[in-house]
Nucleic acid binder design. Structure first.
Lengths: 215, 215
DNA sequence: CGGTAAGCTGACGGCATGACAGGACAAGTG
DNA sequence: CACTTGTCCTGTCATGCCGTCAGCTTACCG
């Protein structure tokens, strides 16, 4: 299904090739964490990986292409977000707990992968299809799960019918993502992480169930 | 207050100088709307402005510097967001209206300035102080106003005391900003703008007042 | 051991960067 | 009108990154 890993000029990559390819990706990842996206140069990545720029171009069309690759890996292995939500009840105290754990898991996931995520976010915001597809892929597990939850509650008559489940879920997820990327901004602003989380959880709970949580 | 406009090498810019400087900024703005941030080159901006790269470097240290300048202008002139909220009541039907108008105004503002805003967002997410200061400046009017509203409702006993007003306001604003940048993402996802807005307004209302709106 | 494909790199033309010195230009002065 | 002054712009240049190619080295296989 995944197909073989191929070089730009069509050869199939063998063991050694895949290793250098991966090393390049790792180094790129590191670079993205330590310097602004705009200043990440192919030559630096190559140097850091102990190889030459030409090698980089053998495996990736450009920096963007490599970033997409990293994001793809993250989306694949990083089920990360999936299990945060599996089959949870949103009624009563369990609901409050679900909201809290969702927030926790989400922020943690974002913190771990912030460098790539903000590049993906930029690409998506710029309207690049490849980027917003992968962004969706990453957020899908959470968004879909939340959407289903809302629909479910609507069927049971616990949530107003005029709520658009997908829009609500998407908005909440967007909020979490945005807050996660700008945590530093919040703290200079005088809001500590510890204070932030319960408020986010509260908003999530309000959004999903329409009611204040019972704690 | 603003001080004189100065060139990089310290001279004060006269009438003609300010004009070309502004032209460069305008062209940069356009460029940012039409091509990815990473690919915006000084030479292109200069060409578009009918001048040379050397001229660009006379007025700005680099592309980042110029972007900050544009953002600063936007923050200054673009009170834009301020009047969306002036002295509004959040009780009863008025509250629902306030929420709707806030969402409307916010999305509109973002749509108008999306190109610069997403670059500012990136800079802020990357931890650049200059960028997140200006981001705060832009969002401050709304955030502060919302914060005050929440505090006010808390004083009147209408909102739980354990809500952190600033965290709540900040989170809601972050949500609006994020959704605004990714509207295209939402639409490929099957959620139309018209459906999005009321849901955002609902969330804002829930967050601020803790209650469902009376429509 | 020879053939084949994978893997890597030196080298190169092309282009962007960023600095400088000097020319063009407007405005004020005697 | 010539002269001065200070602003404004650009030609040019050294430097460095980009992206490609030909060609060399290495690994694998019969």
């Amino acid at each position: 299904m995944t197909g073989q890993v191929r070089t730009v000029d069509g050869r199939v990559a063998g063991r050694r090739g895949q290793a250098t390819r991966q090393k390049l990706l790792d180094c790129l990842s590191e670079m993205l964490s330590s310097s602004p996206y705009r200043d990440v140069k192919v030559i630096d990545v190559a140097r850091k990986a102990g190889t030459s720029p030409a090698t980089f171009y053998q495996y990736f069309p450009d920096v963007e292409g490599a970033v997409l690759e990293i994001a793809e890996q993250m989306a694949a292995e990083g089920a990360g977000l999936t299990d945060v939500l599996a089959e949870r009840s949103w009624v009563g105290k369990a609901g409050w707990q679900a909201a809290q754990e969702l927030v926790d898991g989400f922020l943690e996931f974002w913190r771990k992968n912030d460098a790539i995520l903000r590049v993906v976010d930029l690409g998506a915001a710029e309207g690049d299809k490849r980027f917003y597809k992968i962004r969706m892929k990453i957020l899908n597990s959470v968004t879909n799960s939340l959407t289903d939850t809302v629909k479910d509650l609507q069927d049971k008559g616990k949530v107003d019918k005029d709520v658009n489940a997908a829009a609500m879920a998407g908005s909440l997820v967007a909020m979490l993502a945005s807050v996660a990327s700008h945590q530093k901004g919040f703290s200079t602003w005088g809001v500590k992480q510890a204070e932030l989380k319960p408020n986010l959880a509260l908003l999530v709970h309000l959004g999903i169930t329409g009611k204040k949580p019972t704690k």
